[in-house]
């Protein structure tokens, strides 16, 4: 029996558990603060618990407007990113061509470079081209960095999908579009859905690029940022923060359940 048995040393268990706790406790704290009766400070422990801030937040038109804009931006950016990302993944995964490495680098670049660079580059380009800031300038930025998540998911699935399936379909008389509809899409569908969900979560949450590409419009993160810099309605911010956590958890859990079987067959969980 070697020292490398199936049982972990106690010290490692404690360190790993403490690390996970470090990652989760701050988020759980948000949930407690959403119920506090304290309005003026971040006092701990909360002097009392109340549900009234949920009603107050519900009746705030500025929160609803910001939420609506965020959902719109996330939905449209995700749609663009799914198309661009899956096209790019199909090209990169299924063929060898000159500049293939450059294309995959170009897709990754918007998230590999600090967001502030993407943001200021887009802003100065809009300025040079005299494009007025609107919802569409926000979408332009979001779609650009959302492509990579769809691309990553799709390219992994394309690599696992055997090319002979497509050839078999063509041999059996299906044309390209029928093959796409009945063979390719069922195979990569869940990967696209998972990528789309992650892209949605990414866009819904983005603030760094958005501060540069938005004019007067406030997405939900922009609204929160203003509250963080100049706190005015702390209880409302607490409730919004909690709702944002819950809203972003759903697509992530969904994406996990859609892709986990695929990861198992690949032999390593990334």
């Amino acid at each position: 029996m070697s020292a490398y048995s199936a049982k972990a040393p106690l010290g490692l268990k404690i360190a790993a558990g403490a690390g996970l706790a470090f990652l989760h406790l701050p988020i759980l704290l948000i949930f407690v603060y959403a119920f506090t009766t304290e309005e003026k400070s971040y006092q701990w422990p909360p002097p009392g618990l109340t549900m009234k801030w949920f009603a107050v937040t519900w009746n705030r038109p500025d929160v609803w407007e910001a939420l609506y804009l965020s959902l719109q931006v996330a939905a449209i950016s995700t749609a663009i990113a799914v198309v661009l990302g899956s096209f790019c993944a199909a090209a990169v995964a299924k063929s060898r061509f000159f500049g293939r490495e450059a294309v995959s680098l170009m897709v990754i670049l918007p998230i590999a470079l600090p967001g502030i660079i993407t943001g200021i580059a887009l802003r100065s380009a809009f300025h040079l081209a005299d494009i007025p800031y609107s919802m569409w300038t926000i979408i332009l930025g979001h779609a650009t960095f959302c492509v990579v998540v769809v691309y990553n998911n799709a390219v992994a699935r394309f690599r696992r999908t055997s090319g002979s399936l497509i050839e078999a379909s063509m041999d059996l008389g299906a044309n390209g579009f029928q093959t796409l509809r009945y063979v390719i899409l069922p195979n990569i569908g869940t990967a696209l859905l998972a990528g789309g969900m992650l892209a949605f979560a990414l866009s819904f949450d983005e603030v760094i690029v958005t501060t540069f590409t938005a004019g007067q419009q406030a997405t939900l993160p922009i609204w929160m940022l203003e509250e963080l810099v100049r706190p005015r309605q702390r209880p409302v911010t607490n409730v919004v923060a909690m709702v944002v956590v819950l809203v972003t958890f759903l697509p992530i859990l969904g994406a996990y359940y859609l892709t986990r079987d695929g990861d198992k067959t690949a032999g390593h969980g990334k």
Binding site: L23, P26, I27, D205, V207, L228, A241
Partner: peptide, 19 residues
């Protein structure tokens, strides 16, 4: 346990630390 904090809102995480 790693993915949820990774993907949860950046601003909310910063806000939690402000608290």
């Amino acid at each position: 346990g790693v993915m949820l904090p990774l993907w949860s809102s950046y601003l909310v995480k910063v806000y939690a630390w402000k608290l």
